[in-house]
Design a protein around this nucleic acid. Structure first.
Lengths: 318, 318
DNA sequence: ACCATGGTTAAGTTTTTCTTAATCATAGAC
DNA sequence: GTCTATGATTAAGAAAAACTTAACCATGGT
């Protein structure tokens, strides 16, 4: 009747974790800031506790046995979990540096231009924009907060809606002549797309819709990212489906127009995302307060826009 | 620039794990076989390392702070992983006791009757049949091996196909008179079902098939498990879709017949399942060798059966 | 043939962790 | 309201675990 909770010495498992990772006791010892002898002993202890050899000792190098490989899977995951949990919760080591990761398009076209305002009201905070990490891993970096486009569900993380995103077709005002009917002009205007996350779903929907009105859309231009897309739009390259948040100011200034009476709800919205405890950091709180205030203007602008274009129809995604 | 791999003392996290689980330093201390003072000190150490309070100290009891709750999620999972890994790999503590968990129907109707044979050829092994656990958790029990009906994919476990399972309609020979056409007799015979894992998919398929031949199936009898189902069949209660493995001997002895010229591949097959290292235990090896030999006869019997009924058609599940 | 490298082992030292014992605070019994 | 029993805290010293040092072994590469 073996005790269900009798783990080997934890330190021996830690030594194992490092040693198995680099397949060298010496290298592991260096990482742990101890001598090889210490690692050697810990591994031995662990093997004795388990009654199983974890490493094959060859001369001047070690290899994992199949049992070792099996165990490593678990131990490695376990330590990663601990690291993640600890990092999430630890006292803010740099209370004056706020590291945020922001999806690039939103960052350059919306956030950066406004950042001056934030710096003014929080002069003591040193802001660092981290390039958007694939899986925003809070575990292995100093990252404090993410602005992400998504559904707001992130495993182990807390998230808060920033604003709902809408998509509208926009182009340069010169591309359309008010006198002629839209249908005829459309076929002359290239579509511009980028590799955004929900663009795949959007264009088919829009095209189906336009077909109902017998509006053809033909030629195509594809650019790398939303930032280039905006540039392309401003230089009269064609028509694109854009996030409202990225173009609402350009619409206000009449630098762009919306030639088609339609809009869509984006499949994804913008969220603030971080491990729950990060939301308690002063620096995060003050950023959150600031950006929520700024972002409110996007919502307001959207309502104004809808009111001004009451005939516009929503194309449902579902 | 915080080091990415600077965990707090591991023992302090272990103490936290126990303390957070029972919300009492004293109870945690008892489980860890140390004094309260030790736990108190460890928790304090951890909190100092993190710079964050993990417990709210009330008089005579403690509660987790929100940070504590957050951390506990991770720490708890991490320790469970370690336990699972360690248990999977540990030297076999009871090399003479083989604990296997078997799906009940297969156990009582197939395995148990044959177990005598295994005991003979492995007299030193003390066999224990464990009632089929929901999630066959090797982490928290002495379980050595599972016989499971499934797809053969189990997270973190190794599995080996025992045999492919087929489903055939069977009933007592008395229920059908050879002279009359089957179609007419069918409507008088109750269908018997149990709550097996793929029965839901099976009957609709079969009924669709039978409709093509204009064979109606009407009345219904539902029993708790496959064992009762076999009893019901033998006592002429009706017709059922059965796993071939459970009835092939009864077919051979003409105690049951297959009145309809159809069969289906089961959605699930039988697998041996265990953490990879368990397959190296002598006792497991010898059981595996034995059952593979026994099971071969099911496969052979199936081939014989197919040959003897070449007109039978397979109903595809896809 | 011979370093240099990386792993092992034993002995002794350092560090961590635990116990003991005294102290505190208060919920619950009376 | 007082008393007591419970559970948490703290300091000091004891016990246990972990580490270092140093001598030793095996062998791949020069």
């Amino acid at each position: 009747m073996s005790r269900s909770r009798g783990l080997p010495p934890l330190k021996s498992m830690q030594a194992f974790r490092y040693a198995a990772e680099v397949l060298s006791f010496k290298a592991a010892a260096d990482q742990l800031f101890v001598t090889q002898a210490a690692v050697s002993q810990q591994i031995k202890t662990l093997e004795q506790h388990l009654g199983v050899a974890l490493f094959e000792r060859h001369t001047r190098q070690v290899a994992l046995t199949s049992e070792g490989r099996y165990l490593f899977d678990y131990i490695e995951k376990a330590f990663r979990l601990m690291e993640e949990g600890v990092r999430g919760i630890s006292e803010d080591a740099n209370p004056n540096t706020l590291v945020i990761s922001v999806v690039p398009s939103f960052s350059s076209r919306w956030l950066v231009p406004r950042l001056g305002l934030f710096q003014q009201q929080a002069a003591d905070i040193n802001l660092r924009l981290s390039p958007s990490i694939g899986l925003s891993d809070f575990a292995n970096s100093d990252l404090d907060l993410c602005v992400r486009l998504g559904h707001g569900q992130y495993e182990g993380l807390q998230s808060e809606l920033l604003f709902e995103e809408f998509l509208i077709p926009v182009c340069h005002p010169d591309l359309f002549h008010e006198k002629e009917p839209i249908e005829q002009q459309l076929s002359h205007i290239p579509i511009i797309t980028d590799t955004g996350p929900d663009m795949d779903h959007v264009w088919p929907k829009l095209q189906t819709f336009l077909k109902m009105y017998d509006m053809p859309l033909k030629s195509h231009l594809h650019v790398a990212d939303s930032t280039s897309l905006v540039e392309a739009l401003l230089s009269r390259q064609g028509l694109a489906m854009m996030r409202f948040s990225l173009v609402y100011e350009l619409l206000q200034k009449k630098l762009l127009i919306c030639p088609l009476p339609v809009y869509m709800k984006s499949k994804y919205d913008f969220y603030l995302v971080a491990p729950a405890p990060h939301f308690r950091y002063d620096k995060v709180q003050s950023f959150r307060r600031w950006i929520k205030g700024e972002v409110k203007r996007i919502d307001e602008s959207w309502l104004t826009y809808l009111e001004a274009h009451q005939s516009f129809r929503e194309i449902k995604m579902s």
